[in-house]
Amino acid sequence: MADLTVPVAGAAPPARRRRKIQFQAIIATIPMIGIAISVFFVAILFTIYWSFTKSGMFPGWVWVGLRQYEILWNTNNWQIAVSNIWFFGAMSLVINLIVGFLLAVFMDQNIRQESLFRSIFLYPFAMSLYVTGLAWQWILDPNLGLQVAVRSWGWTDFQFAPLGDPKQAMIGLILGGTWQGAGVTMAILLAGVRGVDQEIWKAAKIDGIPTWKTYLYIVIPMMRGAIATTLVLQLTGIIRTFDLVVSMTGGGPGIATWMPAMYVINAIQSKLNVGQGSAAATMMLAPIAVLLFIRAIVSWWNKRSAGMNVS
């Protein structure tokens, strides 16, 4: 498990002498150069630009300023999609982290059949979110699923069919999402827990600190890296949430479970409204941009304070 933590963008080997062979390296990476520039730079700029234009069925070039954004934020579907993604995101993030961490801690108790448990907790991740959505849709079916089955066991007023209720449908999505993703969080956090030096455990024990306190106050702060990794992984996944919703609720009941990603695809594919699609997509880019900005500030801050320590 220790080898899970592959060094990130490993230590840089010393700079090579520049020779004409560099030329071959450039040829070999032409696909990368082309894609990095054309897709991950130019294409994004296009999307951002179109979001300020009057583009309808086809991309246009008539500048309309923030008009598309005004329309977007006045659209009911978008408002619902945004409040949904906040709720879904916050809930999934917290629940996923808690479940993943608890599982990691329990898995760390030198249990038997560890690899069996691990396989069980992780297999949902091998299945697509689309398949996950279908499976849970079936289980939560109000007429044939869990609710009726439990009632037939004698608990006659048992109620759990969130997908049919606009107010509860998000709970179903969170359930499905957690089922699919908690195992990965467990795997990453388990690697983090095990990366903590055994000496620290011994020291905590000698000092008579209860195990749960050791976990809470010593181990968790020490595995910041693993936690950050899962958070980043979760966040990128949450912003992209699409397949799960399409298969589980189709955005329904009504428009109760719409998500920003659905809004974009719907604007592009069904409504043929490039301007709206681009504006919504640009809004989806915003949180990523903010995160990267924060990251840049943090690393700058760390560098600065490290520098001060040295001097």
Partner: peptide, 13 residues
């Protein structure tokens, strides 16, 4: 950076 960009941003271009 591309690894983090939501796919929807890139779909139309």
């Amino acid at each position: 950076f591309g690894a983090f960009v939501p796919y929807q941003v890139l779909v139309y271009p």
